[in-house]
Structure formats: C-alpha cells, structure tokens
Computed example of a mutant assay.
Amino acid sequence: MTTQYFEDYVVGAERKTHGRTITETDFVVHAGHSGDFFPHHLDAEFAKTTPFGQRIAHGTMVFTIGVGLTAGVINPVAFTYGYDRLRFIKPVFIGDTLHTVLTIADKAEDPKRPGFGRVNERGVVINQRGETVLAFDHLLLVELRPTHGTAGS
C-alpha cells in the first residue's frame, strides 16, 4: 500500500502499466459476464463481412482491462469518483497487446467535501503499434493531508 494524499499528486506526472495480450478467451468470458453476444465480437464469419474483417473486442472489455492494468497500487486515501469522456477510438483484435498510460491532468480541492480534493487522471490505452485505442478521464476523490494543530499553537 502506498499512501498518497491530494497534495502529493503532481499535474503532469505519468505512469505506464505493463502490457497484456488480448485472447479469444477474453472475448468469450466478457460476453458471458456482460450478456453482449453480438456477432461483431463472437462470430468470425459475420465479422469477415464488416469493415474490420475480423472480430473486434467489446469496448467495455477494453475499458475494463485498460483500467484493470492500472490497479497495481492501493492508495487507502483515494477513492474512484467516476469516469468521464470515455471514447473507443480504434478497434482491438485478438492478439493485440495493450498497456495503459495515466497522466495527472488536473486537480482541485472539492468544494462539497471538506478534507478532500479531486484528481483527474487522463488515461489512454495503447496497442502494440503505438495507437491509442481508448481514452478516458478517471476522477478520484483524495483525502487532503491531515493537519496536526495550527501554526502558533
């Protein structure tokens, strides 16, 4: 566990995850979990007739895997507030290897929650060809560093 308070986040700081190769099993398991059995994802013959010429990954699967790759560090004072600006930019295929890059885009104290700030991590999921396949903003609520007394006490 790594405790990183709101004040510790630096706008512009970046971290990159390790890679993960997408498999046919990923497609089948995600279809089972989500109920999305569209032929674009699971029917190889149908997919040949599409502009992509092969099965494409579920966008929600790419998002789940892309975010999951970032979950290697537990910060007990930061909580996911949500995701904004989610975009599926390019298709992902079986055999593609993905990694995620997070960059601290901005931060501000939360006007509604004393003692907390909001941190916006801009995320991009990138394939082995260096192409961005997915982009999103990950919003965090992060505790401000506790103060122990006030100056002059």
Rank of each mutant, 00 (worst) to 15 (best):
N127Q: 06
V101D: 01
P91R: 07
F88L: 09
A108F: 12
V125T: 11
K107R: 09
R122D: 14
Y83S: 09
I65P: 00
D84N: 11
G130D: 08
P111S: 09
R87V: 12
P91N: 05
H99E: 13
V67G: 06
P91C: 04
F63D: 03
A105V: 09
A78E: 06
G72N: 08
F116K: 08
G123D: 10
V124C: 10
F116M: 10
K107N: 08
P76Y: 01
R118L: 14
D84I: 09
A71C: 13
F88W: 10
L98K: 08
F79Y: 13
G123Y: 05
I94W: 07
E131S: 03
G72F: 04
F79Q: 10
H99R: 11
V101C: 02
P114V: 05
R129G: 11
I104L: 08
V101P: 03
H99Y: 14
D84F: 07
A78H: 00
P91Y: 09
P91I: 09
R113Y: 01
R113E: 07
R118I: 14
V67L: 15
G68W: 01
V77H: 01
A71D: 13
T103C: 08
G115Q: 00
A78Y: 01
T103D: 02
T70L: 06
T100G: 03
T97S: 12
L69D: 03
Q128I: 05
P111R: 12
F63L: 13
E131K: 07
T64L: 14
G82P: 00
A105G: 12
I104F: 05
G95R: 02
T132I: 13
N75W: 01
T132V: 15
D110I: 06
F93A: 00
T97E: 11
N120I: 14
V133F: 01
I89K: 15
I74G: 11
A78R: 00
Y81I: 08
L69G: 01
P76M: 04
I104V: 15
E121H: 13
D106Q: 12
K90F: 09
F93T: 07
G66T: 07
V119C: 00
K90I: 08
H99A: 09
D110K: 11
A108M: 12
Y83H: 09
V73G: 10
F79K: 10
R118E: 15
L69Y: 01
T97L: 03
V133H: 04
G130A: 07
I65N: 04
R113C: 03
L98G: 02
V124I: 15
R129K: 15
E121R: 12
K107I: 00
V92K: 04
G117W: 03
R129C: 11
I74H: 14
T64N: 13
V101N: 03
E121D: 14
V77Y: 03
G68R: 04
P111K: 13
K112W: 10
E121C: 12
G115D: 05
H99W: 10
